[in-house]
């Protein structure tokens, strides 16, 4: 870790933000193409070669639409709520490390925006603020479908945040740090398993935590089968029923960017981040690896959406509190015991 001038960090942050926005646009394209492939149809084909310009056309269309505000809406909160979702989703990417410190252009560059010593918790904290955008937007719309969606979102996010946070405790114990960079570096060490030498990816030592994390992450980002706040068959569009034009697009952006950030986060925590063959020598390979890992997670999201029906509200809460919470606590206890035993402190 080196201290680099602030302007370099700003440039890197600017780059990351733009990559995220473009990545989000093409995430929608990827999703539609993938869903199309899974459902025996083509997906977008008309706009540009193979429909590649479709996300841009969608964006322009959303900007050009009329911005409707319900008469009974609470105007300030209504304006303000989508921004919360959008901003908090993007801020989470600030602590994701895309690699270590590299030497390029004649100076030392950090491939991360900042290295907070509580980076993992930082991501969780901002995703928990993000739910305000949903709740407040739902309330401000003064629509009953929105209100029900907001209530569902509040209960769901509060419940699944616990699972999300606790499933990471095992990882923190093994890494001995809350900093994402330290966790990433820890996973680049080798693990000797008899004749086998593997990278110390935490998915190997924490498989249960990984599964729980993925379930909670899908719920936290309000995606199928946990997309109850916006369940279109019951609540029309849930919390964003009354939103249109670019206010709606902020929700849309926020949802997809938080998916990307969570995927990057999961790749960093459990799949070694940029680690992979040759990544220690070539930093660009590392970036490639972390992106591929994130895309695998994103594909998983889409796959779930194409396959599974939706949970009912009580089943969702039951799953969180009755199934996942005991499992996650079990995971913590077992990890702690093993950690203590390996340090010789237990017996």
């Amino acid at each position: 870790m080196n201290d680099q001038p602030l302007w370099l960090t700003f440039i890197f942050a600017f780059l990351i933000m733009n990559v995220l926005l473009i990545g989000m646009a093409y995430m929608t394209y990827f999703e539609r193409k993938m869903l199309g492939a899974m459902q025996d149809r083509m997906g977008p084909t008309r706009t540009g070669p193979k429909g590649l310009l479709q996300p841009i056309a969608d964006g322009i269309k959303l900007l050009g639409k009329e911005d409707l505000i319900p008469r009974a809406a609470d105007k300030w909160v209504f304006f303000f709520a989508p921004l919360i979702v959008f901003v908090t989703a993007i801020v989470g990417a600030a602590v994701i490390p895309f690699g270590g410190t590299i030497n390029a252009f004649g100076r030392d560059l950090n491939l991360y925006i900042t290295d907070l010593n509580v980076g993992a918790l930082f991501v969780l904290a901002f995703s928990s603020i993000g739910v305000y955008g949903i709740i407040l937007g739902a309330w401000a719309s003064s629509n009953r479908y929105s209100l029900l969606g907001g209530l569902r979102a509040a209960a769901q996010v509060v419940s699944y945040e616990i699972i999300l946070g606790l499933s990471l405790v095992g990882v923190f114990m093994l890494a001995g740090s809350l900093s994402l960079r330290d966790i990433m570096l820890e996973q680049q060490t080798n693990l000797e398993l008899g004749p086998l030498t593997v990278k110390n990816w935490f998915i190997l030592s924490q498989p249960l935590a990984f599964i729980l994390f993925m379930i909670a992450a899908v719920a936290e980002t309000n995606r199928a089968p946990f997309d109850l706040p916006e369940a279109e068959s019951e609540l029309v569009s849930g919390f964003h029923t009354e939103y249109s034009a670019f206010r709606f697009s902020f929700y849309f952006l926020g949802e997809y960017i938080s998916m990307i950030v969570v995927s990057l986060f999961a790749a960093t925590l459990f799949l070694g981040g940029p680690s992979g063959p040759g990544s220690s020598d070539h930093w660009y390979l590392g970036i490639l690896y972390i992106l591929i890992k994130a895309i695998v997670f994103l594909f998983f999201y889409i796959w779930l959406r194409a396959t599974l029906p939706r949970f009912r509200y009580d089943q969702l809460m039951g799953l969180a509190w009755k199934v996942l919470l005991p499992l996650v606590i079990l995971n913590i206890v077992v990890t702690a015991a093993i950690r203590l035993a390996s340090d010789g402190l237990l017996f």
């Binding site: 869903l35 459902q39 025996d40 997309d227 959406r305 194409a306 599974l308 029906p309």
Partner: peptide, 16 residues
């Protein structure tokens, strides 16, 4: 019915 319960792909398969 499957679409109502949230299984998105079923409707396309059935209409096929």
């Amino acid at each position: 019915h499957a679409l109502d319960i949230g299984a998105l792909s079923m409707s396309l398969y059935c209409f096929r």
